[in-house]
């Protein structure tokens, strides 16, 4: 009895507040916009019995999804999200790898502290971390002041409100997600493997390329997914740093909902975004399982 209660409590919570809302999103994405409260039609009328349900189902259609294909704003937003997520994931990998490598090679007694230093920003507000770049990247900001002072440029660069600022913001805020799996893969690496490679005639660089790099593959894959997946739906970073010219699907969804109040289209955008994410999520899960099996 107690076991049933223990299962039922979290189970029913998740069904009520995760599964059902999600089904509602799908349903509304198949509905039509209406000037009413709530601003969509049809509404499920259970008092009409079976006929009510039939009427309800017959009124659902894929018009919203068709609409998404007609307006190239959505296409561009999806593609632009994909591009921004891919480029910033790669950039994060390039920044994180040397850092994780340095951590894994640091003296044993330093490592817990270094780990804490990587995790610490993760605990402080995401919003504030994104915001902190605003003052740095602005036209009269510190970066431009510095670059002018050391005579690299003559007049300020427009960085804020461009995709570059979004890349910087993403790499900065998601760096811990990339560093941690890389670090755990590199830290496990047996130092004698590198000695063996050198002993068999490798230079240091060859040993890195032939042994360290392939053996950190799982960390690279995990880190890339951990950055790529959430960045696809990112809203805060493009909203604060990207300006009006940076299109990302999370921002489009937000504006569809709050500015245009077009709930059916916003829901359709959400459904498509999720469908796009299913593939990387499944691949990620499979990679994790494979790794767990290899270790277990």
């Amino acid at each position: 009895m107690k076991r049933a209660a223990l299962i039922l409590l979290p189970y029913s919570w998740l069904i009520a507040l995760f599964l059902v809302p999600f089904l509602i999103v799908i349903k509304i994405s198949l509905s039509d916009i209406a000037l009413a409260i709530p601003p969509y039609t049809p509404n499920l009328d259970l008092s009409a019995g079976w006929q009510g349900i039939k009427d309800f189902v017959s009124q659902l259609d894929f018009d919203n999804f068709k609409f998404l294909t007609t307006d190239d704003l959505y296409w561009k937003a999806y593609l632009s999200s994909l591009k921004i997520a891919s480029i910033s994931t790669f950039a994060a990998l390039c920044v994180a790898y040397p850092l994780a490598y340095g951590m894994a090679r640091a003296p044993d007694e330093w490592r817990p502290t270094l780990m804490m230093l990587v995790i610490l920003p993760f605990w402080s507000s995401f919003l504030i971390r994104v915001y902190s770049w605003k003052a740095i990247l602005a036209n009269e900001g510190l970066l431009n002041q510095l670059l002018i002072a050391i005579r690299v440029i003559d007049e300020p660069l427009q960085i804020l409100n461009t995709p570059t600022a979004v890349y910087i913001g993403i790499v900065y805020t998601y760096l811990p997600f990339m560093v941690l799996p890389l670090y755990s893969a590199l830290e496990k690496l047996d130092a004698s493997l590198l000695e063996a490679a050198e002993d068999l005639g490798c230079t240091r660089f060859q040993a890195f390329w032939l042994v360290t790099f392939p053996l950190s593959r799982n960390g690279i894959i995990a880190g890339c997914f951990l950055v790529f997946i959430p960045v696809m739906g990112e809203f805060v970073i493009p909203a604060l740093l990207g300006g009006s010219q940076t299109l990302m699907i999370g921002k489009v969804l937000w504006e569809e909902f709050f500015s245009n109040r077009d709930w059916p289209v916003a829901s359709a955008v959400a459904v498509i975004l999720l469908l796009l994410l299913v593939i990387p999520i499944v691949l990620f899960q499979r990679n994790e399982e494979k790794q767990r099996e290899a270790e277990g």
Partner: peptide, 23 residues
């Protein structure tokens, strides 16, 4: 059940927020 535990971890915030609001 386990799917519902893991899904919110990877789902974009905008979708979670939207679906809860609609509920």
């Amino acid at each position: 059940f386990s799917g519902m535990i893991y899904a919110p971890l990877v789902m974009p915030d905008v979708i979670l927020g939207l679906s809860l609001l609609l509920l």
